[in-house]
Amino acid sequence: MIYPHFALELEELTVSFDGFKAVNGVTLYVAKDELRVIIGPNGAGKTTLLDLICGRTKPTDGKITFMDKVLTRLPEQEIVRAGVVRKFQTPSIYPKISVFENLELSHPKGRTAIGAIFFRRTPDVVERIHMVAEQIFLKDLLNKEAEQLSHGQKQWLEIGMLLMADPQLLLLDEPVAGMSVREREQTAELLRSICKGRSAVVIEHDMKFVRRIADKVTVMHQGKVLAEGHMDDIEKDPRVVEVYLGH
C-alpha cells in the first residue's frame, strides 16, 4: 500500500511541566477519515494533547507523525501548512473584522508577509468563502463584524476558518461548549459532513453528542490512555465508569 494506514501517529508522547507529566507516554493512532473523540475528567491532559499535536507546546519526549511527515519539532504555521488545523476551546476569531474577512484571512493564498500585501480577492476565493459560509450557517452574516456574533455562531465561524484551508486533520476542542440544544444538533450534523474525507480528533464532554459523532473513543486519565474502543464497549468498561462516567 502506498498510503499509510494511519493518518496520525502519536508514539510515547510525553510532556513534562516542571516535573509534572501532563501527558505521559501516550500512544495513539488515528486512521484516515476517522473521527476520534477523546474524553476524560478535567486535568486528564486532553487539551495538552491537542496542544502538542498542533505545535503550541513542544513535547519533552516522543514522536508525532502525520501522513508520513514528522511534526514533532515544526513551528505552528508549518504544521498548519501540512494540513493540521486546530479549533480552540473558547472561540478564537478576529473580532474587529467582518465574517467574510475572517474567512478570507484563513484562505491559504497569500500566507507570506509580501504575499498578503499583493493578495487579490479573486473569484475563486470569493466562491470558496461563500461555500464555507453556507456550510457553517453564516451565509447571511458575511458582512457582520465578527465580534457581534452569538457565542454559537463564533464557534461555527472558527470551524469555517479551519475549513477554508481544506485541512486533512481537524483538532477540535469542545466544539459544542456553550451551545444551545438546537445549535448542538446543527453542529453534530456539520461535523459529520465536514469530516468526510478528513480525519478529526475531538475533545468533548457531552456524552449524547459523543455518541452521535464518534467512530472510536479514547479515554484519558492522569495523562495516560485509560481505554480505547467503540462507545458501547467504553461505557461498559468498569475503569472508565470509575474515573469518569460514574461521576
Binding site: 498542533c54 503550541r56 513551528p75 505552528e76 504555521q77 498548519v80 501548512r81 488545523v85 486546530r86 480552540f88 478564537s92 476569531i93 478576529y94 473580532p95 474587529k96 473584522i97 474577512e101 478570507e104 484571512l105 484563513s106 491559504p108 497569500g110 500566507r111 507570506t112 508577509a113 498578503a116 500585501i117 499583493f118 493578495f119 476558518m161 484551508a165
Partner: peptide
Amino acid sequence: NTKFGRLLLAVRDMEDRVRFSGYDV
C-alpha cells in the same frame, strides 16, 4: 486596505489564531 492590513488587526487581537491559520506572525 490590503489583506495585510486586516492581517495586522488579526495579529493585534488574536496572535495565536493567526499562527494557527498558517502565517508566520
